[in-house]
Nucleic acid binder design. Structure first.
Length: 202
DNA sequence: CAATAGATCATCT
DNA sequence: GATGATCTATTGC
């Protein structure tokens, strides 16, 4: 897809995020994450994998232990980016859902690259195949140039980092599984993936 | 192939 | 001071 085509897609409205996190996570599958860096430079990918984190009711969620300096934006209004660093090295991108005060969110786990593949290959020099560019939470942020310092709290409805409307292809199905890499509530079915997508993480 | 170790630091106890 | 919503390289079958 060309940068112009991507930028012509309408952003998802704030009301989209104003629902339970699990619902938002499921409906987010297929839509595009777009990072506009400067006038013509665009990196973008289609969400093929996402997980819901339920906040105060979910021991696996960062917000479970309440409001801290790190989790501040989770408790704020929906449609914003919650970016955190994991294992001292990797930035992970979440989208805040649910009304202000209710800290549900959606972790973006994998993208299918759509635009700016050249920039992605430079930032992810170790990835040999296209399928490896964005197939993991730490990978997609590296590929898109999303970081905590630049994007913590960013408004994804109107800002340089946005989520835009892109329908699922005919025949595509969404599979539901337990979440990955957590220790609590490991059986909750809150991970959503485009069934059979080669761009999902393991 | 699968299993595992090492990298590296913000965050919370 | 311990612990991660991870990724990569390496070892061993």
């Amino acid at each position: 897809m060309s940068a112009d085509e991507i930028l012509a897609l309408p952003p998802l409205a704030r009301e989209f995020y104003l629902r339970p996190a699990a619902e938002v996570a499921r409906d987010l599958i297929g839509h595009a994450i777009v990072h506009r860096e400067g006038r013509r430079r665009v990196t973008a990918g289609r969400i093929v994998e996402a997980e819901a984190y339920l906040g105060l009711a979910d021991a696996a969620a960062h917000a479970y232990r309440g409001l801290t300096a790190r989790t501040r934006v989770l408790f704020g209004p929906p449609g914003h980016a919650y970016v955190y660093i994991i294992y001292g090295m990797y930035d992970c991108l979440n989208l805040v859902a649910e009304p202000e005060g209710s800290p549900g969110c959606v972790l973006i786990r994998a993208l299918e690259p759509l635009a700016g593949l050249d920039a992605m290959r430079i930032r992810r020099a170790k990835a040999r195949r296209v399928e490896d560019l964005c197939s993991g939470p730490g990978r997609l942020t590296a590929a898109l140039g999303v970081t905590k310092v630049r994007h913590y709290g960013a408004d994804v409805v109107s800002g340089a980092l946005s989520v835009r409307r892109l329908p699922l292809d005919d025949g595509e199905e969404i599979a539901v599984t337990p979440r990955i890499g957590i220790k609590d509530n490991i059986d909750w079915p809150l991970r959503f993936v485009v069934a059979g997508s080669p761009f999902a993480s393991r």
